[in-house]
Design a binder for these strands. Structure first.
Length: 474
RNA sequence: CGAGGAGUAGCGCAGUUUGGUAGCGCGCUUGGUUCGGGACCAAGAGGUCGUGGGUUCAAAUCCCGUCUCCUCGACCA
């Protein structure tokens, strides 16, 4: 029902998905471009989504027994070079401060691209006895990675994230938390972002610089490409040895700890946009939508209309619903389109006719269906929000399941990814074959499947060691 | 860093080929009528044409340099 004039403001979601994405994030005022290349301003509407994400994740961390802390932005260059693989992985993309206070610094300072090094350093000071373990901390902060090409939320020079870091006495415990956090992320993605994900171990090629093992969660975007939406890393003793994280164990022996880390970023906002959005713009999952219900008054200057809208709004707020009345001067049609583009899950239209009849008109953004309810029936609105969440997840899950196809040969794999699918295939475990797949089909190994049932390597035809989800990725 | 595209009013663009008073739509401001899918009328404000140099009586327009942004690749949350 949206008219052509309106729809034409946003690029076609099927024909030009990248443009659709940038059109939507800018027009809905989630972000604007910053003056420095690769930087973005997260505007109030976008930041409100991030605050909702933070609140949900932070509550889960606290429940799991993780404490928040804050570590400095600047890291001595010498820290970065202590873990060989780590520095090699991050050197190309770090920004470095060389001057301060009008003079050249003795030692250059790295603007953190991630904080394993500085946190490892501090852990080295704080951990002395087995009684100090485990030490489990998280910080919400910004990091900087000087990427070559950037896109709002998906890849920016500076981004916001949380990074959790733990040190344990044993590798088993650290590995267990690596799994636990992966599943915490998976549950969060499902219940809060209404977004299905694939979780699993990453290949050597894809793992974090300095880790023993990296696990990831991958989400399928509207165009069938994959987006890494969160990662957890088991470091073994790599960082503990580099930074002297040692403790005296119960048996009196001096031992190195085992560390792990985990993170999700503002990229999650990009992920939910590209998972749920449609031609009209955003479709925000109710749990993170800054405005869950927008009330649009009809003929708002007529007596009693705004009063009725405000009363309904207060009633909804009283029930914990994030509601808002749009009493701006714009026409109702304008407001409908605007709030649909901004992805508000439920719209309530309320005019003289409804008030007289004791009714209200509900519009759900995900299906664009309308229905009537008794005026002031907040329970009905809350139920609708819940079914929207459930349906968003259900549709996205069905879509992803439908678009996971198997392949036994490189040709089949290519057809699969060309069709916008994730391709499930066997892999012999050799780097050469992984590289060949990338070259041949521009697809990478996203995660290894726990269910390992593909018999032969999709590339070389030898016996497969792993079953892998291959996809083109952001 | 490679390939393509673009910088002219807040946004989207025309004007550049052929140099000659900087335009259009949307938005914005004020007043009025409207209000159930981007309403209408009237009056207004707003630009050293990304930037530096050159050619010329005269440059948005021609020449040289430079910066930025977007899309696609290689690198990555």
């Amino acid at each position: 029902m949206a008219n052509d004039k309106f729809v034409s403001q946003i690029a076609d979601i099927e024909e030009d998905f990248p443009r659709w994405y940038t059109d939507v994030v800018v027009k809905t005022k989630l972000v604007d471009y910053g003056p420095v290349k690769g930087t973005m301003v997260i505007r109030p509407y976008g930041y409100a989504i991030w605050e909702n994400i933070q609140r949900e994740i932070d509550a889960r961390f606290k429940k799991a027994g993780v404490e928040n802390a804050y570590f400095p932005l600047l890291i001595p260059m010498s820290f970065m070079t202590k873990e060989a693989e780590h520095v090699e992985g991050f050197a190309p993309e770090v920004a470095v401060v060389t001057h301060a206070g009008g003079a050249k610094l003795e030692e250059p300072l790295v603007i953190r691209p991630t904080s394993e090094t500085i946190i490892g350093h501090m852990m080295g000071k704080w951990v002395e006895s087995w009684r100090d373990l485990p030490l489990r901390m998280n910080q919400w902060c910004n990091v900087m990675r000087w990427e070559k090409t950037t896109r709002p939320f998906l890849r920016t020079s500076e981004f916001l994230w949380q990074e959790g870091h733990s040190v344990y006495a044993t590798g088993e415990e650290a590995e267990a938390e690596t799994q636990d956090m992966l599943h915490l992320y998976e549950e969060f993605a499902k219940n809060v972002l209404c977004m299905p994900v694939l979780v699993g171990r990453k290949t050597e090629k894809e793992k974090f610089a300095g880790a023993v093992a990296t696990y990831g969660m991958e989400a399928m975007m509207h165009d069938g490409k994959s987006l890494q939406a969160g990662t957890t890393h088991y470091m073994g003793q790599n960082f503990a040895k580099a930074f002297g994280v040692q403790f005296t164990d119960k048996d009196g022996a001096l031992k190195y700890g085992y560390t792990m880390s985990y993170g999700v970023s503002t990229r999650l906002i990009g992920a939910l946009i590209m998972t749920h959005g449609d031609q009209r713009g955003l479709i925000l999952p109710p749990p993170v939508a800054p405005v869950q219900v927008v009330i649009v008054p009809i003929a708002q200057k007529k007596e009693g209309v705004l009063e009725a809208c405000n009363a309904l709004c207060e009633a909804l707020k009283g029930e914990g619903v994030r509601a808002k009345v749009d009493d701006s001067d714009n026409s109702p049609g304008w407001k409908f389109n605007e709030w649909e583009m901004k992805g508000v899950p439920v719209r309530i239209e309320l005019g003289p006719r409804d008030i007289e009849g004791g009714k209200m008109l509900l519009f759900r953004r995900d299906t664009c269906e309308k229905c009537e309810a008794a005026l002031g029936d907040t329970a009905c609105v809350k139920a609708l929000l819940n079914s929207i969440s459930r349906d968003l997840y259900g549709r996205a899950k069905a879509r992803m399941d439908e678009r996971i196809v198997g392949a036994n040969t490189l040709g089949e794999l290519l057809d699969g990814v060309n069709g916008g699918n994730f391709v499930r295939a066997g892999w012999c475990g050799e780097r050469a074959c992984e590289d060949k797949v990338k070259e041949f089909a521009q697809a990478t190994a996203r995660v290894l499947d726990e269910t390992n049932d593909m018999p032969v390597c999709v590339c070389c035809g030898k016996r497969a060691k792993h079953t892998v989800f291959f996809a083109r990725a952001y």
